[in-house]
Design a protein around this nucleic acid. Sequence first.
DNA 1: AACCAACGCAACCGCCCGAAA
DNA 2: ATTTCGGGCGGTTGCGTTGGT
Length: 332
Amino acid sequence: MGRNLCSTSTTTAARQRVRRGLWSPDEDEKLFSYITRNGVGCWSSVPKLAGLQRCGKSCRLRWINYLRPDLKRGSFSQKEEELIVSLHELLGNRWAQIAAQMPGRTDNEIKNFWNSCLKKKLISQGIDPSTHKPAASEIQSKKRAQETSGSVKNGGEVSTGDEAKFPVDESRYYESKPLFGASSLPATTQFEIFGVGYGSNVINPFPHVTRPGFDSRPPSQFSAYAAGLLNSERGGVRETHFSDMSGSRSTSNISHSYGVTQSIGQAAAASFSWAEGGKKLETLFQLPDFIKSQDQDPSPWAQNSSDDFNSYPALSLSEDLSGLDFEVFQET
DNA sequence: AACCAACGCAACCGCCCGAAA
DNA sequence: ATTTCGGGCGGTTGCGTTGGT
């Protein structure tokens, strides 16, 4: 079986050829610029074409987990937490599949969140995070409690714990109810969900950074733009390139800013910002005016700021979206 | 102020799979 | 049918940050 040099080669020469470790702002710019211009294609050729001394795999990960403009970022909401738990119960550690149901979130992000927070939270609630059933110790203590109270069910047997009382929302863990409806929404509606889903948290999750021309806009504009970037291979955006490398520097967070010119001749701006300490790069966008807002009427998601994910056909969402043409771009 | 442990997260590793040669 | 290659995925590592002492 073939092996990717990046991931498997252990020769010193091979390792010396590619850079490793944290990405520099310059590398991020190069990768972002390249992908924005050319779209996602053959990752193995990206480093060479983009002028990077990284392996293609590293470029791919950097794009998917960090540079992609449609990433939500920011902390997970309560509803997102619940959705992750529900999906994990269904899918197990299939993070990519879970991420596919959560636009704007990456598998890596969800995986990290699960391992660092949700797992512990479930354990603290007496739930075994791998089975989503009460932990053995919890069953034992419950059994003891029932025995002492004299209200033991089923002759004192505690088989699966399904009937045990538990200090969590039982319906979540013990009912085998379907998580998502089987209905499918019209494509336009799904696009709105997609847009708002991406955009809801995109509105400057980093309040210390000012994004002129962006923060005042409806989120779906950003979303539509982001979707177009990702969809460029399919013709959503035929050609997008950086045209103005006249960066501006400030003393604080904004280190670079660039113009992004669409093939139709209207400009958006993207800028890279490094958070305090220079450790984290944020990709920021100033959106082109030509992108029409698709959610003047709030979408279901927008209306439900409480994000009732269970109301939507999330299991089929990603597939449905893949077939969309993102007409918002073609309107221009 | 200095030290240390815990935590969070970006990045890497290694394996698997499907497509192409 | 077999080999090679590229991409995707889940698991793991390591570093920077944060909070407590």
